[in-house]
C-alpha cells in the first residue's frame, strides 16, 4: 500500500524529517506516537502533498505509484486521505457544495459521471449517521465556527464520504469528548475493509483501545526510532518517552 524510504523534508532551512522509513500493507493499522514537535504532522502533510515542505531526499510509493510526483488533489483522488490535526475554517464555502465538488472530482478522476442530487443526498445522510454528525452543520461554511470536536467529526465524516484507501488520522482524538471518541472510532472501524489501511497519530492509549493497531511506531526527532506491536502503547502510556531517548543516547 504505502512504502516510505529514507524520507527527508525541511521547511525553510529547518530539517524536520530526517530519514523516515515505513511500510504499510493493505488492511494494516499503524499507530505513530512520539513527543510534541517530533515531526508527526509534518510526515502526514508531506504525504498529503503540502508544498511548504521540501522533500530533499527519499521516496514514497503508494500502490506502486510515485506519490511525491503527484499534486495534492491527485493524491486524494488516488485514495490518500489526511484528517487534519487542525482543520481549517473556510468562510463562505458551503459544506454541502464543498463535499459535492470533492465527491464529483473523485468520480471524474475515475471516469464516472457526477452523482445525481438525490444519490448524493442519500450518501451524505448515510455517512452523517455513521459519525452522528449534526445535520445542521451541513448548512454552514466549512468548519466555520465549529467546536473542536465538531471539526474532528467533520474530518471523519469527509473520510466516510470519500472512502479512501489510506487514511492518515492526525490526532483525531484530541477535542473529542468520551462519547464522540467512541462514535468516531466505531465509524472508522466500520469503514475499514481488508483492502484499506490506516495510520493513526495519537498521544493517547484511549483511541487505540478502539482503533486497534497492528504495528506501533515512535517518531522522534524526524526519525522512526522504535517499532513494535500494540503492547508498546501501554508501555509508552506508563513510562513516557524518556526511556526511548535514553536508549537512543546509549547507542
Amino acid at each position: 500500500m504505502l512504502e516510505i524510504k529514507d524520507l527527508h523534508a525541511k521547511v525553510g532551512d529547518k530539517e524536520i524529517l530526517k530519514g523516515v522509513n515505513l511500510v504499510v500493507k493493505p488492511g494494516e493499522v499503524h499507530a505513530i506516537m512520539g513527543p510534541n514537535g517530533a515531526g508527526k504532522s509534518t510526515l502526514s502533510s508531506v504525504l498529503a502533498g503540502r508544498e511548504v515542505f521540501d522533500v530533499t531526499k527519499g521516496e514514497v510509493h503508494f500502490q506502486g505509484k510515485d506519490l511525491l510526483a503527484l499534486p495534492a488533489e491527485d493524491r486524494a483522488r488516488e485514495g490518500v486521505f489526511m484528517s487534519f490535526q487542525y482543520p481549517v475554517e473556510i468562510p463562505g464555502v458551503n459544506t454541502v457544495n464543498f463535499l459535492k465538488t470533492a465527491v464529483n472530482e473523485h468520480r471524474k478522476y475515475k471516469g464516472l459521471e457526477p452523482l445525481a442530487a438525490g444519490a448524493f443526498l442519500k450518501l451524505m445522510r448515510e455517512k452523517q449517521a455513521l459519525v452522528e454528525m449534526d445535520a445542521k452543520l451541513m448548512n454552514r461554511s466549512v468548519n466555520e465556527g465549529f467546536s473542536g470536536g465538531e471539526k474532528k467529526k467533520n474530518e471523519i465524516f469527509q473520510m466516510a464520504m470519500l472512502e479512501p484507501k489510506l487514511s492518515i488520522l492526525d490526532e483525531t482524538d484530541s477535542g473529542l469528548d468520551i462519547d464522540a471518541l467512541r462514535i468516531v472510532s466505531q465509524g472508522v472501524n466500520t469503514l475499514k475493509t481488508p483492502e484499506t489501511s490506516t495510520i493513526v497519530i495519537t498521544h493517547y492509549q484511549r483511541l487505540l483501545d478502539y482503533i486497534v493497531p497492528d504495528v506501533v511506531h515512535v517518531l522522534y526527532d524526524g526519525r522512526i526510532v522504535k517499532t513494535a506491536g500494540r503492547e508498546l502503547v501501554a508501555e509508552l502510556e506508563e513510562k513516557g518517552y524518556d526511556w526511548i531517548k535514553k536508549e537512543l543516547e546509549e547507542h
Binding site: 503540502r50 511548504v52 481549517v88 468562510p91 464555502v93 472530482e105
Partner: peptide, 29 residues
C-alpha cells in the same frame, strides 16, 4: 488563504477549482 486552499485540494478538488471556490466564497457575503 493557502491553508484553506490546501485543505480543499487535499479533498481531491483541483487547484484551479479550489481557487475559484475561495474567490467565490469571498464575494458571497
Amino acid at each position: 488563504d493557502e491553508d484553506a486552499l490546501f485543505y480543499l485540494r487535499s479533498r481531491g478538488i483541483g487547484a484551479k477549482e479550489a481557487r475559484m471556490m475561495m474567490v467565490f466564497a469571498f464575494t458571497n457575503e
